[in-house]
Simulated assay, not measured.
Amino acid sequence: MHFLSDDLEEYLANNSQKEPKLLQELTRETHLKVIQPRMLTGHFQGRVLSLLSKLIQPKYILEIGTYTGYSALCLAEGLSPDGELHTIDVNAELYDMQRTYFDRSDYGTKIHQHVGDALDIIPKLDIVFDLIFIDAEKKQYDNYLETVLPKTKPGSVILSDNVLWSGKVVEPLDKKDKTTKVLLDYNKKLNEHPLLDTVLLPIRDGLTLSRVK
């Protein structure tokens, strides 16, 4: 679902920071070689992630859901000079493609890839994260949140993607639609969580910003 007209979306992109050439190439290759290319973060949201990261200037970033690496590269743009980005994905087949683009960027040595279930990997990371981006299996969003919270500190920012779920969150709920129900509960939990300040932004398919108190 497009929440804005194509003309407005094009206007937003044209009046935001230009998409870096490397990310243009990654977008092209993703559409040519990888299934479900619509999962790609894309130009406008990518620039939003980049700017947020630059404002926060995180030392440690955690990304849950790498896909082909577009969002990781955007987030890495704001890393502090001695920073690290840890990104997790279950699909080992995309590892080499991700690495190719990471190594072509200015942040290759700062980006660490993990393959497997994020719920198993995160507890083993002895790191307190300044910025976390959740963009993987939607039915696990609540579990991701509970797993990452112990890895945060006051001021840490948690970003959650696809929280509008193509507008289904405001449509009559189909009892068989488990994913939308999970996201409805997750959005409510973020907004009411005593440890978080939260705002939901209508960027692309919905992006929630939560700050740890």
Rank of each mutant, 00 (worst) to 15 (best):
D89H: 02
S50C: 10
I122K: 13
K21Q: 15
L209R: 12
D106H: 10
V169T: 14
V199T: 13
I111D: 00
L190Q: 06
D120T: 10
L23V: 02
L23K: 05
V163C: 05
R211Q: 08
L201R: 14
Y67R: 06
S53I: 04
V34G: 10
L190E: 03
L62I: 02
A13N: 05
H31V: 01
E19Q: 12
L62W: 03
P123S: 13
L159Q: 00
D130I: 01
F44T: 08
V148T: 07
M39G: 04
D106N: 07
L183W: 13
C74F: 10
L49N: 06
I122L: 11
T87R: 15
H193Q: 06
K213R: 07
L8G: 01
A13Y: 04
D117T: 04
I132F: 08
F133W: 06
H31M: 03
T100Q: 14
H2C: 05
S166Y: 14
L79D: 03
K33E: 15
I56A: 05
G46W: 00
A13V: 08
M39R: 11
L32D: 12
D106Y: 09
K138Q: 10
P20G: 08
L94S: 06
K181Y: 09
K176M: 07
K59N: 02
T66W: 02
L200S: 11
L200D: 09
A136V: 07
G42P: 04
K213H: 00
L131Q: 07
S160H: 10
K139I: 11
I35A: 13
K54D: 01
D174N: 14
V115A: 13
Q57W: 00
I203N: 08
G116Y: 03
Y95E: 12
F129W: 10
T198I: 13
N15M: 09
L26K: 10
S16K: 04
F44L: 09
P154Y: 06
